[in-house]
Write a protein that binds this DNA or RNA. Structure first.
Lengths: 225, 225
DNA sequence: AGTAATTCTTGATTTAAATCAATTTCTTTA
DNA sequence: TAAAGAAATTGATTTAAATCAAGAATTACT
């Protein structure tokens, strides 16, 4: 059996914001880390919850969703190992605005709000790291927002495919159902389906298997508008 | 004539992130602050610039815009006195992704990147304040993104009017041209024009003068979808 | 004040994407 | 492995908003 301390050490190693800390600092943080497991479909937190902890995904996958005023669910982003959530509200006394649900069996490391804030007081490097991570997420959300207001669905899907494929353009797997992709891009499954067909017919992508694709013409895909 | 030190003191008083600091900490920061003036239409910074300073608006108004892949300009947000910008990139070594332009004669207080980071090392409270401000901006941008993907233009405009009016529902001024509102909401001036007319015809708002309006039925406006 | 230059409004038309509806394909589980 | 359930596809239709175009109102300029 693996000890809690081991899990904590693993979490700390995994997460970029802790990586550049001194050994001393890391040793201070380790005892603050608690680990929890979530089964597929289980809720990590819901909108309205008070934010008690910073949550770091150690393994598995979590989807973060939001319910819009009109009742529609929108997928905001996915958390993979090393990603964390809860920072936004950790410092604002507010309640959570979104939902976190495990898409796979998921291990989460948690640090309680008070513990974390206390640690920040004595570790300027940790604060800088958090600010850095914050800055990146802010830029990414801002970019998403701009895309949503200025780009067509076709363009957004093309970008999504290029991002998702990364360097594995010749065989990559969609990390979520088309239904979720639709929600993520702010459209409907029907439209996603049609755009996939269009891209395939035009020789931009090729379907290898269920949920597996190859990008045939990255240049054209990048120029879709 | 007003001395630079006075300007600096004014900036520091103005900005929420500095307000809760101790007198000692404030005294340390004051000499780091440089002041600059910008005329209407003048550029504070452009995309591609390296981020050299945190910019704090002391007076006037600044619009932050982004150029989308298709060349369209989108207005991201406005900075009013007390607001600041540049935090996102201050910690990421990256270049600016957006443009800042003075909409009115504007005074800006600037703190150089290195100076600011050094100050953070010794002032945990400052770090917490920044994180707090960051969290709020992140939440606001995320909300904007969700609205853009899930709400109709009509709904977005209704929300925009309610936000802009604040508590002055019986006489408020639009802070920007309809063209800019269109850009901000991701639509066209023509559509904005038609929606204004629709709201007026349905007794939701009333035009008092050029760019001045009264909200007649806030409840209905909030329920538009 | 008077003219030029923007910005705003309104109408007509087109277009992208949503919705509605019916199969088909895939996944789960009994 | 068969049956049930969920997800994805495809077609027909509707709808919200963009685009194109012209005129009216504001604002800026000399």
């Amino acid at each position: 059996m693996v000890h809690d301390a081991d899990h904590a050490a693993q979490c700390i190693k995994l997460v970029p914001i802790f990586q550049t800390l001194s050994d001393t600092e890391r040793a201070e943080i380790a005892p603050l880390v608690k680990q929890r497991h979530f089964a597929v479909g289980e809720s990590l937190f819901a909108a309205g919850d008070t934010v008690g902890s910073l949550m770091i995904v150690a393994g598995g996958q979590v989807k973060i969703t939001q319910i819009a005023a009109n009742g529609k669910e929108q997928l905001l982003y996915l958390l993979n190992p090393g990603d964390f959530d809860g920072e936004a509200a950790l410092f604002t006394n507010s309640t959570r605005q979104n939902f976190g649900t495990a898409l796979a069996p998921t291990d989460v490391c948690m640090i309680r709000r008070q513990d974390f804030q206390k640690q920040l007081q004595t570790s300027p490097q940790l604060a800088l790291n958090i600010l850095n991570a914050f800055g990146q997420r802010l830029a990414s959300v801002a970019e998403q927002s701009t895309q949503a207001t200025t780009a067509s669905i076709e363009e957004r899907l093309a970008n999504y495919l290029l991002e998702t494929a990364g360097d594995k353009t010749d065989d990559f797997k969609l990390p979520m159902k088309k239904k979720d992709i639709a929600s993520y891009l702010g459209t409907t499954p029907e439209t996603i389906s049609r755009k996939f067909r269009e891209f395939t017919d035009n020789g931009l992508i090729e379907k290898l298997a269920v949920n597996r694709f190859r990008i045939l013409d990255a240049d054209s895909l990048a120029m879709v508008e």
